[in-house]
Amino acid sequence: MRSRSDRLFLLSLLPPAATIVAAMMLMIYVFVYHSVPVLVREGLTFFASSRWSPSTSLRSAFYGILPAIYGTLVTSGIAVAIALPLSLSMTLFLNEVAPPRIRAFFSTLVDMMAGLPTIVYGLWGLFVLAPLLQRLVMEPLHRYLGFLPLFSCPPISGYSVLTAGVILAIMVMPYTFALMNEAYASIPLTYREAVLAMGASRYEASRILLSMIRPAIVGSVLLGLGRAASETVAVTLVIGNTPTISPCLFSSGYTIASLIATQYGEAPLYPFMVSALYGAGLFLLVLGLALNTVGLALVTRWRVRMGVSA
């Protein structure tokens, strides 16, 4: 029943919502507007080419963002591949094993990680993580398992796709954890009681309950991918920023975000480069939208199915 007061309430909540909608529309407009020039010039090869040749001469200028797309997908993939088992473990640990005091302490720590300023991650990644990974992980792997294409390039410096992936994993993990934890913890008590009543061990209970939140897990994976894809500063500092596509984890590369961050300073000097950067940004926007929509839909559908929340 919608009374007048309720209607007024709704109306008062519309301006903030309208602001968000307006901001998004503006964003779409600005991005599409600025992407058109490079897309008209290069068509779909913009996304498919590795050639990035800035030039003041119109004839030789060409911008291909394939390496950036590749790097974004690879680093996000590594990030989620690392963050997923960690988040799952932490979820299970907190909900099945840990006593309540540790539970509170632990989730406080994770919340803390989630909000830590990203530049601190970047600074640490640049000066501590990169050399550490190079010495302890990359060099040994290259020496002993260098025949595998994943480890085939010599790690010249710690600034690589792998380092970027690791730092992204550390940054993304609090988010995937929060989502999974919330999903797991909100499995209605009845299911949990039923499982325990059957005499399941913690391992068996976990498996059963986990299978119930599968859509939420997938959803949080997608959201984590999206989050990893858009991180700018920390990645720019450790990824090496070269237009390379290589199966080797130790090579440097680009992500769309780091491409924009590193090239924007010089871009106005080159015809159509600014447009190219907006085009790359547009791609990321669309990718993020897609990942997000699917991820959110999965999580919502799961919630509905579980009968969780109003």
């Binding site: 779409i28 600005v30 599409v32 507007y33 600025h34 058109v36 020039p37 008209v40």
Partner: peptide, 11 residues
Amino acid sequence: VAAALNGYRHY
């Protein structure tokens, strides 16, 4: 569509 059309003019 508006952005695309204006974008083409921009091009």
